[in-house]
Design a binder for these strands. Sequence first.
DNA 1: GGATTGTTGCAAAG
DNA 2: CTTTGCAACAATCC
Length: 550
Amino acid sequence: MTLPGSVLHWFRRDLRTADNRALNRAISLAKKSNLPLIPVFFLDPEYHNPTACGPLRMRFILESISALQRSLDDKCSSRLRVICARPTDVFPDLVRRWGVKHLVFEYEYAPSERARDEAVVADVEGFDVDVVREHGFTLYNPNVLLQKAKGATAPTTMSSFLSLVDDVGDPENPVEFADGRQVELTSCPDATLKDDDKDGYLLVPKLGDIGYEDCTKQTGWERFRGGEEEGIARMDEFLSREGGKVAARFAKPKTSPAAFVKRETTVLSPYLALGCVSSRVFHARLRDLEENHDVAEMPQTRLWGQLMWREHFWLLAGMVPEFHRMNGNPVCRKINWRTGDEAELRLKTWAEARTGYPWIDALMMQLKTEGFVHHLGRHSLACFLTRGDLWVSWEEGYKVFEHYLVDYDYALNSANWMWLSCSAFFSMYFRVYSPVAFAKKWDKEGAFIKHYLPVLRKLPTKYIHEPWKAPAMVQKMAGCVIGKDYPERMVDHSKASKENIAKMKENYARNEYGAERGERQHMNGESRSSESRDSGDGTSRKTKRRKTRR
DNA sequence: GGATTGTTGCAAAG
DNA sequence: CTTTGCAACAATCC
Ligand SMILES: Cc1cc2nc3c(=O)[nH]c(=O)nc-3n(C[C@H](O)[C@H](O)[C@H](O)COP(=O)(O)OP(=O)(O)OC[C@H]3O[C@@H](n4cnc5c(N)ncnc54)[C@H](O)[C@@H]3O)c2cc1C
């Protein structure tokens, strides 16, 4: 049974009904042409598999699409279809099956998603399908920013990005669901719904259905629930703390990485990463807030600025090839990270929270049990793995974060790992986080450490940051013998960090980058101008840059 | 071309 | 409690 026609809205990182321009377009097209709206989400084995995507993030995604399904049922009586397949494998069939006339979706900017979208668009080309795309994941259409940018290239520092934003002005205002209009759409014929039901499209699968162990039995850890309503509620709650004063005086480096009962940042990142909350809605709320309160903080550190970091990194991620890797990435310094068995072993020890440094291991436990770590906690983890202590490539850390974080985001994860490893954006490599001193600064009493590392709970506070210093008797009394109940330190931080600073110096002196740095073009599918092709001397191009000194 | 700037370190010395 | 070494960094702004 094929439908005479339909409008397909493909949900990806826009799992919301509010301020969803693409969805609004789909709805108005359906209305105008009297066709049913068919919303679809793909559980794509390329992304939604237990290797790349851990159970906490998977659960968050499933919760978000469940919430979306309910919301769409209520708001426009259009059932969200959830299809377990690669979009490129099934799109032609779906177009035939539903007689798709219009395919609508929001742009994504990461290369693999871009490639997938191009493939799908090519697939449906032969079917006379009108493909409609909107920008909505970020505050700005990247091309609008690039048009105003110097030399049409993305800025690489925050201050120049901010002046660009200043030039361009505020982003477009958020829009209401269905542009605030009444929604009465042509309903989908029962026969079609029946077919879709038979194929299992009408229900959101459970974790167990798609090859995951159920992790919902874990208790005692903070649980971040997916969904648009949850995200909006979280935003509202944060912005109303002390009548907005908390948000108004927000200063990122002053928020505590050790706060776990009540978080000191918004924890909107997972909602922004999946589009449960629109960045433009958040932005508009912050603009409001700043009009009604005195805000003294620097742009970079106040709450509004956090969204600018996101915007900044997404603009770059759409321009820079191999943004999530060192090789082939023109903004990333080439650094001789450790390789081989020793690198494997170190990575494993770090990832299994067995470094022997309570602060680092507690943070890793927080990552694994909750899928979220405060920004400065991520700094500690990332610095330790890379330039601080272990000298293991940031790409390995990236993958571990991708797996465990509920807020995993291609651009933000890449950019921040490069930042922390002094591979890009930040270069003062002698500023090294100490796993002991930094812990003492933020987690003086060790409450955070004890919460996430129960084995250390009975240890006197005096030794909580450096348990190896506790006398044997004290260790025994606390039921925490070093080398038995809790591991020996894997490295001596003061020794390792000094060696690594010296190595950094050598690596910086080589002045090599992952690729030649030249003109770049945003890879967002609108192909603004004809491609500038390299003349064919491909491999011989040096990745060394002119040195200014020495 | 030279000065300025850069979200968020640490430990030791004065 | 402030300054300095770590080591001279890159990008941008005039
Ligand atoms: C090694 C490392 C890896 C990271 N990986 C990710 C990731 O995969 N996904 C992710 O969302 N964030 C990542 N971050 C950035 C940052 O730590 C988180 O965005 C932030 O901690 C989320 O908490 P929040 O929502 O409470 O932030 P808030 O301080 O409340 O900020 C609000 C929003 O601003 C944006 N934002 C905040 N900090 C940054 C930043 N440094 N860079 C870019 N955007 C920012 C986020 O969208 C965030 O939700 C990473 C940071 C580091 C150091």
